[in-house]
Design a protein around this nucleic acid. Structure first.
Lengths: 140, 140
DNA sequence: GATCAACCCTATAGTGGCTATAGGGTCAAA
DNA sequence: TTTGACCCTATAGCCACTATAGGGTTGATC
């Protein structure tokens, strides 16, 4: 099984990533500068493809590019300890849980707001607008 | 009770909004251009403060500035029907629920990922890195 | 009236993670 | 050689702010 070379379009289709995004990752230093054809087209190796898949999977899990940069650095040093990786995952999990909590609070506020309006009325007596408008607890 | 005038700093403190943000809302047309002192300082009325509070409450509920623009327009025409307002709220509620669903999926993926690593090991045999790295289902 | 700190002004650029556009060049098959 | 699909770079835009630079105003105190 020889190592094949792929154009950016092939890589894009194979990974579900847009070509512009791949170039962006390269510019950000997440992907190494690939080989080029005489005409300047990028030629990616299988290793490049694997690295890109790693990035995309991590992004899907909500990691920032900065996080992914660290994860990649760790992944490249196979003698490093697992602890940092573990910590990053735990941290991300906590961040996600925090976001869920805040969204749930939002959800119930919006439910209440929606329930206050039965429709058919006019703005003048709209409870939603009323409740967004005040009462102004802020005394200036 | 006379209408008082407030500097941007007073308004900022009263509404929990940074002065730069207030100026930004003005530039975006969400707040009207306020009165000015001879020296050019902004002077806000109580109506301005109420409008800003409306904006901030709506933002806290996750509405975009574009949504808020519509809500403000509706709120200003007290003879308009409630339906549009109601629809906006329902739409926002759906958006929030969608985000919660996606975050919950993320949460459980991250839980699995975290559970796969017991710590103490080295990257070379780290299940997390392994699982982010592959198996490459994408056959190129 | 001078001084001072606290406040305010505008304008511009940066954040993250892309996406869109303009204006071109390359490649491979027919 | 022509066509059409593909690729290149560079720049600007998206959202909702935030940060910074470089200055001017205000009002209380001396």
């Amino acid at each position: 099984m020889k190592t094949s070379r792929h154009t950016i379009g092939q890589l894009a289709r194979a990974t579900g990533t847009k070509a512009v995004t791949i170039r962006y990752y390269e510019k950000e230093g997440l992907l190494p500068a690939p080989a080029r054809t005489p005409g300047g087209y990028r030629l990616f190796s299988d290793a490049d493809r694997d690295r890109l898949l790693f990035i995309r999977r991590s992004r899907r899990l909500g990691f920032s590019l900065e996080d992914i940069r660290s994860l990649l650095t760790l992944a490249d040093r196979s003698d490093a300890s697992c602890e940092e990786v573990d910590a990053k995952v735990a941290e991300q999990l906590e961040a996600v849980r925090g976001r869920i909590r805040r969204l749930r609070a939002l959800e119930s506020e919006l439910e209440q707001l929606g329930a206050s309006c039965q429709g058919g009325g006019v703005i003048g007596c709209c409870r939603i607008i009323e409740s967004l408008s005040g009462p102004g607890r802020a005394t200036l």
